[in-house]
Design a protein around this nucleic acid. Structure first.
Lengths: 211, 211
DNA sequence: TAGATTGTTAATCGATTAACAATC
DNA sequence: TAGATTGTTAATCGATTAACAATC
């Protein structure tokens, strides 16, 4: 029997919901609410309370013994579970509109952009959202000096694999691929591919269903 | 028993894969390959052949009687299944970096941006990727004149609900929400929320698993 | 004590994978 | 005919939901 390459992590849907739990809980924090029930959270997220209970059990949140979840402690538990308590150092490659949007995105917890790279001499030497844009030809050299954990790819698809080959030789942990192309990485590097059209496909199916 | 509001569509994972089938098939088209097997497609997408067969059965692709799928016809079948044969007219609200990136994104099939809206007088009157940027105060008026099917939200979260309230009064089919806030829409409007941090959460879990 | 809520086990549902029949 | 491949049914696996025990 063929061995599946991508071993299942299990709980992927739960993990994808974690960031929404975080922002929901932070909104309670802003309102100085210290304890919330699974029903409260569920109502705010349009899901069922049992989903909240099951999901949160993954992160071992502190509870006020059968009276609700402690807001601050649950935020900490989720943050730790995702490894976001120690922000991961990241670089971004390709400072177009999407790249710039990600560099300035306020919503990422646990990710800190250290530098961006581009080929365009007009961009090199500038900063975007306070992050310096460096010459792509210095990529290797930079990675040997600085410990970088995540590389975010927002350059044109055609250049993706050649950059990935450079990244693969350095000591990074993960690649987050926003390009429209499949890339090949060594198995020790974690890979996440974002496909914006997948969301559009889902929306299109919903439209069809509404009619 | 409480009624679940978001009725299950079923097959959501399959639907989210459709756009990848499309781009994979288009790469065969570019190479003038006319017939491919589920094994070919599976190899190129890093999934199992049975997944390809099951997914494609949803769209009723033309097959060369047990010898493979006809590339052109299968592209057409998927496109039709998603309703992408008649491109949907769309507007985008909030021409920041993310908005600009989406306006210029080459990867969307079946979506045509007709106009963008912003509050910034420096942007109003210009075009981005050939799409005119209009004054947000003309939104209602514009929607009464032009048949728009999808509204894409890329403005700051704080403004989201007030814009949604305007949109809800007009005759649109769907809202694609890229903001970080939950919005309330009437049930006849399809809603898709994109959460960029969900992908980061997934990637973080993969990193943890690799260690 | 009564009510409320988590924690946990069991049931259901849906998606993935396997097996194989049909047939080119 | 033999080999290959889709189409389809069955089995497995995982995620969601229900039910309820524990206990504050």
């Amino acid at each position: 029997m063929m061995e599946t390459e991508t071993k299942r992590l299990g709980k992927t849907p739960s993990i994808r919901r974690m960031s929404l739990y975080l922002s929901t809980l932070k909104s309670y924090q802003a309102k100085k609410i210290e304890i919330v029930t699974s029903a409260d959270i569920a109502a705010d997220m349009d899901i069922l309370p049992i989903v909240v209970k099951k999901d949160l059990q993954l992160v071992h949140p502190p509870t006020k013994k059968r009276a609700g979840y402690l807001v601050n402690g649950t935020i900490k538990a989720i943050t730790t579970f995702l490894g976001w308590n120690k922000p991961k150092s990241a670089i971004l490659i390709g400072v177009g509109h999407l790249g710039s949007a990600l560099l300035g995105y306020r919503g990422f917890s646990g990710l800190t952009f250290v530098a961006a790279f581009d080929t365009d001499v007009k961009k090199i030497g500038t900063t975007i959202h306070h992050i310096p844009v460096l010459n792509i030809s210095n990529l290797s050299h930079f990675l040997k000096k600085r410990k970088i954990e995540i590389a975010v790819l927002t350059m044109p698809s055609e250049q993706a694999q050649s950059i990935v080959d450079i990244l693969s030789q350095e000591n990074i942990l993960a690649i987050w691929n926003f390009t429209q192309t499949k890339i090949h990485v060594p198995s020790h590097i974690a890979l996440q591919r974002e496909d914006l059209s997948a969301g559009l496909a889902e929306l299109s199916a919903k439209i069809k269903n509404n009619q």
